[in-house]
Amino acid sequence: MTSTEDSPAALLAPYYRCEQDTVVVSAQQGSGFAKDIAGDHNPIHDVDAPRFCVPGDLLFALIVEHYGLARHMTLTFRGMLRADTPLRFPTAPETAFSIADAAGRDYVGVEFGPRMPAPPAVQRGVIEAYVACSGQTFPDLLQPLLEAHQVMFNPDRPLVVYDSMALAFDRPLTAPPSLSLTQTHLEVSGKRGDARFDFDILEDGQQIGRCWKKMVVSGLRAYSSADMGAVVQRYQARRAAAGV
């Protein structure tokens, strides 16, 4: 991997380290990526969170750094990745492969193909545009869905994590893209909610692809305007403290 100023490698260098043939993300690195690059202030990405989880957006970014872009890319998350877990990225992956730890436990299932050539600056632009959507997830996109369905997560132990994400391109990109929200959806089943956010991928204002993110909201209960209002207020305070 080359590390030019405008490339995925330059963007991601502060947020992981290599140990022999594995990739390792510390809590500090994962938290920094979530807050500084994705604009994601989910408490599960706080350095001192008891259930700290490496951001799925960072794993997506690392996959792009390692393998570039494909016309169709789908990531399915199979577990919460803890800090300092060594990961192996296949050196010659097939169109379907997994990112696993040294013991063989899968954390991300990847469908990837056919490969799509793109300059490093375009690859970086895809990463930045895609992960920035996480800064909108809560409260901007998710809270209205929860209110419409009159459900919410436990305000004392909120748990909102990635289930899957996907991108599809109609043609190769020639410039860094932007994303435009097209629809949101929430499916409730007992105490679990599956939230999906769909976007168009735009180049110079023209649609050239589509992408989506699917989140799992756990521990659903009856919606409380007062409780949700307090959660939103705390979250906005976290954003403000981060200078957002």
Rank of each mutant, 00 (worst) to 15 (best):
G113N: 10
A148S: 15
E128S: 03
A118H: 00
G113Q: 08
A148G: 06
V122A: 01
E111V: 09
P139Y: 01
R115Y: 08
C133L: 14
L145F: 12
Q123H: 07
F138M: 11
A148L: 07
S134D: 11
A148R: 11
Y130M: 12
P120K: 05
L141G: 05
V131H: 04
V122S: 01
P119T: 11
V122P: 00
E128L: 13
A132Y: 08
V110C: 10
L146R: 03
Y107R: 06
R124T: 11
E111W: 05
G125T: 00
R124N: 12
V122G: 01
A121H: 10
H149D: 14
G135K: 08
F153H: 15
E111H: 12
F138G: 05
V131L: 08
Q150I: 05
V131K: 06
T137Y: 07
Q143S: 11
F112N: 01
V108P: 07
Q143M: 09
L141V: 06
I127Q: 10
E147Q: 15
Q150D: 04
M116Q: 14
Y107H: 12
D156T: 09
P120T: 06
N154F: 10
V110Y: 05
P119Q: 14
N154D: 15
D140T: 09
L141M: 13
E147V: 02
Y130N: 12
P144K: 00
L146W: 00
P155E: 09
A121P: 02
F112I: 03
V122Y: 00
E128Y: 05
Q123S: 03
G125F: 00
L145W: 09
G125I: 00
M152K: 04
P139T: 03
P155L: 05
H149K: 14
T137G: 04
P119H: 07
P117I: 06
P144N: 01
Y130D: 11
A132R: 13
G135L: 07
E111D: 15
P114R: 05
A129V: 01
A132W: 04
D140Q: 11
Q150E: 12
H149Y: 05
T137V: 15
P117C: 08
P120C: 08
M152D: 04
D140P: 02
